[in-house]
Design a protein around this nucleic acid. Sequence first.
DNA 1: GGGATGCTTCGCTCATGATCGAACTATGAG
DNA 2: CTCATAGTTCGATCATGAGCGAAGCATCCC
Lengths: 229, 229
Amino acid sequence: MRDGPDIAEIASLIGDPARAQMLMALADARAWTAGELAREASITAQTASAHLAKLEAAGLVRIEAQGRHRYVSLASASVSDALEALLRLAADQPKPKRKPGPRDPALRHARSCYNHLAGEVAVRLTDHFLARGWLKGSREGGWHLSQAGAKGFADAFGITVDELGSRKPLARPCLDWSERRPHLAGPLGSALLESLFEHGWVRRADGRTVTLTKRGEERIAALVGGSTR
Amino acid sequence: MRDGPDIAEIASLIGDPARAQMLMALADARAWTAGELAREASITAQTASAHLAKLEAAGLVRIEAQGRHRYVSLASASVSDALEALLRLAADQPKPKRKPGPRDPALRHARSCYNHLAGEVAVRLTDHFLARGWLKGSREGGWHLSQAGAKGFADAFGITVDELGSRKPLARPCLDWSERRPHLAGPLGSALLESLFEHGWVRRADGRTVTLTKRGEERIAALVGGSTR
DNA sequence: GGGATGCTTCGCTCATGATCGAACTATGAG
DNA sequence: CTCATAGTTCGATCATGAGCGAAGCATCCC
């Protein structure tokens, strides 16, 4: 059927494995260069170039030249929304394949996702908050902060509810690309990342990677138990 | 890249025009037979059969045999969420292609979408409510019912806010598949559809189609002006 | 039971598009 | 200016999968 609906065109663009890999990398960070994306997706520069031209033409990505580098980023929140919805759908599948997401171990471990923490560490912390009852399931399928949680976050991270503002919900699950499980997002997630920076538990390793400091490893291990590596 | 992420597999399933057409038809209604879907997508029964087998294997649809008929429905809300996200993304594109959605003119005109009204009539009514200020944009990007709207819905449709219950939001935009613009959903949308039935403005034509009665045409023309056909 | 209808499976065709080697252009660094 | 690197374009290859004719099975109706 030649004149299919628009969603087929968009979906078929996302449906190529190399392009999907690149889009998912972009969903996590502000911008990657074309060369980085090619390496991430294990394709040659020329193949990446052709793919990116298609994604740009369809309005899924924006490309800005800076000297010899081409910086690529997702064109809008609609793109990341669609990727997230597809990932949620894929996560429902009975036989998950190998983990998607960044190949780089450092990116899997800890990274910033928009304005909150993502990766193994973020998921472990989130699991801990849920296990301790600091976060509880809410009626809308998201999370809310319990009273024990309010005290816990204040004690452990110096985050008080007052400073989170009036945006609701304060805490929401954001599916973690690399771990396939939720990590903490929302104003509380943002405040957590900020607190981790302020207390010196994490620092920026490069534009996308967040590194646990020695102090951070100790503190988090003390908080949740076990080792972070 | 052989071991691509899961979203590529899901997206490539949706990325075939015939499959996309069938999925969108399913998103609107409870169930279609395999033969109806084949006709909807203008493909042969054997092609549809192969496509549906793939969609079922991937967990996107459920198929139930009833005698010689196979009834197909979407497997979960995650599927319709993903379709809606893709449609929102496609709606952002600069050069929309021809309208997607049901081929059947009756389905384009008026139909039920889950538990509220969809199609041309629904979009026209919604436009009217917005133009009159009965519905206003809310902070979260949805809609809320104004005071004028509460009075207007009570006068025109006998719907009072009290009977809508405590679910929030009372009114939300739901992107209309066939019109590419929002129609009214949420408790208010449900109540509107119910009211239209009760007042005899619409009636069921078959499992999926809603027909405006003569009285309904007159009343809606009087309310919003112009003709409905 | 016979014929009609709904649907599945098999085998084959062929259009599509991802991929990469080669060549080229643009930019940056020494 | 030279060389290295980033990225684009062109042309050719080939794997993939949508599509349908044919055949077969299941169900329904007269």
